[in-house]
């Protein structure tokens, strides 16, 4: 079995601290019985509106949070076991929303060095890893720059390089493009896809953008702490009504096809890319002529 992330009946509650400072755990769980297994080398998008529990799930993958009930196994290692902590964090790197709050050093190169230094990698190998990581995100030419001189997209790519330098098998990205402009978003998405395709790194992308999710191999929709849908982008997005009912959108082209379909026009319902839409519409026009 080539499963990298295996969550089994995961339940998690945030401990709520009451006024008299007693920890009260009898709150509504954020994750209720979530079972997800992710295959090595895949590109998985996790969708869900705010408060659905998608970020909480992401934080379980590299043991920032530990399940209250159930288990999370990363390459067979239990996240609840303290001994596995650093090995899990090295296998499953994590990138957050705000690049500014992840960069530790005043020079790009110095920041990428941070993780391998923590892992106690010999200096010679660090050099090699850092150069490779910076080239992988196409930031090698900026290695001597200060992070403050870079654009948002560039900073986020540096943050990704900082994780790549640990040589992880899996990267979890928690809304990495939420604070970026369209160009920065494009840069980051291109980088993620390239890492997935060329280096075979498993990507778990938590996102708000349907267009980004459409580029993945598999979409998991989380709502109210449960897995609502799980399938290929085509399978998930063709359920336009279900998506709308949980406050999520579908790509514009999918919605267009859906609306046309409703009007009684025969068009495929599983269109997710602009190219597909153009072709389908062209075929439709040919037929009507």
């Amino acid at each position: 079995m080539n499963v990298i992330v295996d969550a089994q009946h995961l339940v998690f509650r945030y401990p709520e601290v009451t006024e008299d400072n007693e920890t009260n755990v009898q709150t509504e769980p954020v994750l209720k019985d979530v079972s997800i297994s992710i295959e090595k080398g895949s590109f998985v998008a996790v969708l869900g509106h705010n408060g659905s529990g998608k970020s909480t799930f992401a934080k379980h993958i590299n043991a920032i949070l530990v399940p209250d009930e159930g288990k999370v196994l990363i390459e067979g290692m239990d996240t609840a076991d303290e001994e596995n902590l650093f090995e899990i964090r090295q296998k499953a790197g994590m990138v957050f929303q705000n690049p500014d709050n992840q960069i530790v050093a005043t020079i790009v190169e110095e920041d990428v060095v941070f993780a391998p230094e923590n892992l106690g990698v010999p200096p010679k190998e660090i050099r090699q890893r850092v150069d490779d990581a910076l080239k992988a995100v196409k930031m090698y030419d900026y290695r001597k720059h200060a992070p403050t001189q870079l654009s948002g997209g560039q900073k986020q790519r540096v943050a990704i390089a900082g994780v790549i330098a640990m040589q992880p098998d899996c990267i979890v990205l928690d809304e990495p493009t939420a604070m970026l402009d369209p160009q920065g978003r494009q840069e980051v998405m291109d980088t993620i896809r390239r890492l997935n395709r060329e280096k075979g790194i498993t990507v778990i992308l938590i996102t708000h953008y349907m267009e980004e999710a459409a580029q993945s191999d598999r979409i998991i929709v989380i709502d109210g702490g449960k897995v609502l849908m799980d399938g290929t982008p085509k399978e998930v997005f063709s359920q336009v009504e279900t998506m709308k009912s949980v406050g999520l959108d579908v790509p514009q082209v999918t919605e267009l096809a859906h609306l046309l379909h409703k009007e009684g026009i025969t068009i495929e319902k599983d269109i997710i890319s602009t190219q597909e839409c153009v072709e389908a519409l062209a075929a439709l026009l040919d037929r009507t002529e």
């Binding site: 964090r89 923590n118 200096p123």
Partner: peptide, 23 residues
């Protein structure tokens, strides 16, 4: 910011000066 940075540092296996190498 400090809290987020601390989490990000932990995610990159920071555990103080012990066992740390320097480039």
């Amino acid at each position: 910011r400090a809290e987020e940075l601390a989490t990000a540092m932990e995610c990159r296996c920071y555990r103080g000066g012990e066992g740390r190498t320097r480039l």
